[in-house]
């Protein structure tokens, strides 16, 4: 089993076999040539292996130039209603637990001085401790520009549930970026809490070993990093926002 792939094409190359095989598997996946079972295996791996997922995404981007071959065809009218019925009728996924992005602590903590968030903060009193609820169409929304950074945040407020969702859109400048959230506490160097947009609704789960440190008096900060987050474990890009964490009244 150890030597089984020595006759793999190109296996004699200078790179490690795993990297080579990952490249091929990712490329074959994007090409679409794998069996259904193999496709599910690749997708399961993507969900747990960020580096492998990045390799698949790179193939996707590289090969997407071939998408020009697809000629647009307007679909029949009745499809749209069917789709909306199927999409909107589905029960809300279980991932709707309250996240940092929806928490008042988070918003109090942040000194987004240049953001026009005041207008929507009024709706947030109803937020505390809310479990998942069905989401209706947002009633209010805002696009917020963080001055001078090329980063935008968009917010949608759902009046029926009181939920305010905010997501960063860090794509205004050329070149890809991620927004990384950092915890600064107790004289430690900033420790990463994770990359913001990749976990849906701008939320993330604080690593277990950092939860004790996330308390009143700590500071949260957001930096702009290469896609997937800082390669070094330290903030490498500009800090675009920071502020102290305060306990909710």
């Amino acid at each position: 089993m150890t030597d089984k792939n020595s006759d793999e094409p190109g296996a004699e190359g200078a790179e490690g076999g795993n990297v080579r095989r990952d490249e091929l598997v990712a490329g074959e996946y994007v090409l679409g040539i794998l069996s259904l079972d193999d496709r599910r295996k690749v997708e399961a791996r993507m969900a747990t292996d960020r580096r492998f997922a990045a390799t698949v995404r790179r193939w996707q981007t590289n090969l997407s130039g071939l998408d020009d071959a697809y000629q647009p065809v307007t679909p029949p009218r009745h499809l749209r209603r069917k789709i909306e019925r199927r999409a909107f009728g589905a029960p809300r996924p279980a991932s709707a637990r309250p996240s940092l992005w929806n928490s008042l602590v988070f918003w109090r903590g942040f000194a987004f001085a240049s953001l026009a968030v005041a207008a929507v903060l009024g709706g947030m009193a109803a937020l505390s401790g809310q479990a998942a609820r069905p989401l209706l169409a947002p009633t209010l929304s805002a696009e917020m520009t963080v001055t001078g950074t090329g980063v935008d945040l968009i917010a949608a407020y759902h009046a029926a549930s009181g939920r305010l969702l905010v997501r960063p859109v860090a794509a205004r400048n050329e070149g890809a970026k991620s927004l990384e959230l950092w915890l600064v506490e107790g004289g430690h160097a900033p420790r990463s809490l994770g990359v913001l947009p990749e976990t849906g609704e701008g939320g993330l789960v604080v690593p277990a070993d950092l939860r004790r440190s996330l308390s009143a008096g700590a500071i949260l900060a957001v930096s702009i990093e290469p896609p997937g987050g800082s390669p070094t474990g330290k903030a490498t890009g500009p800090i675009i926002a920071q502020g102290p964490v305060a306990r909710m009244p």
Partner: peptide, 9 residues
């Protein structure tokens, strides 16, 4: 909600 504008077009 999992779309990362920075990562892909």
């Amino acid at each position: 909600d999992g779309f990362v504008p920075a990562a892909t077009s």
